[in-house]
Write a protein that binds this DNA or RNA. Structure first.
Lengths: 104, 104
DNA sequence: CGGTTGGATAAGTCTATGCTTATGTATTGA
DNA sequence: TCAATACATAAGCATAGACTTATCCAACCG
């Protein structure tokens, strides 16, 4: 189940850090490791889990594999969250207000 | 860390089911168990984890403990998600459109 | 070619986690 | 007051999951 894959993938802080890094700009696995104190196999395994959850996607470029954020995973979370929008504070019921909050 | 608690809490399908049930209407722990094939201690433990993640909150009512959705947890996810709004499909960048999708 | 580099995979280990049974603690109602 | 009910907590167990080391594969480069 896709929803399950997503929440499981995001349950690990290292994977959220990887995802956040990719959100700032796509890069390959080696570049991702820089400044992250994580072994090469561990990174590869995390990326595999993020990929299965459709949170990232890859594209082979010769010897390198470039990773980037996959919007599909995020869309699934947005939809999951939207099911409970009646509980959102009215302040952020307007997305424009929310995004303004974030940007500053 | 609150973010960590939330994603860990949601990583379990049983807890997401509990949360969804509470979103449809607050109730006590025994009522939650109905139709859920889950032991009383297991339910209590799940609720404890959801509470720590601020996804649900409780209110003792005599012998019963009423549980309900806590908007605070949802707000945290919304904010986490909003950090990546540049990756959302443009279709749902407008929340009104999104909510319309959900309602049907 | 043949070595080097980027990355995936396999197998084993250790810890986290979700369950169980047993028990504890309030609250209520007979 | 005392049994029953609602729930929490403790302790133990079994599986999942995050890491390790070792190895493999493929693409590049001298």
């Amino acid at each position: 189940m896709a929803e399950n894959d997503i929440f499981r993938a995001l349950a690990d802080p290292t994977r959220r850090a990887i995802f956040e890094k990719l959100a700032a700009g796509s890069m390959n696995a080696s570049a991702l490791r820089k400044g992250m104190e994580i072994s090469q196999p561990a990174m590869s395994q995390h990326l595999s889990i993020l990929r299965d959850a459709k949170l990232v996607r890859q594209e082979r470029q010769g010897r390198f594999v470039n990773y980037e954020v996959d919007p599909e995973g995020l869309t699934l979370i947005v939809h999951w969250l939207a099911k409970y929008h009646t509980f959102w504070p009215s302040r952020i019921a307007d997305l424009k207000v929310l995004l303004k909050e974030i940007d500053q």
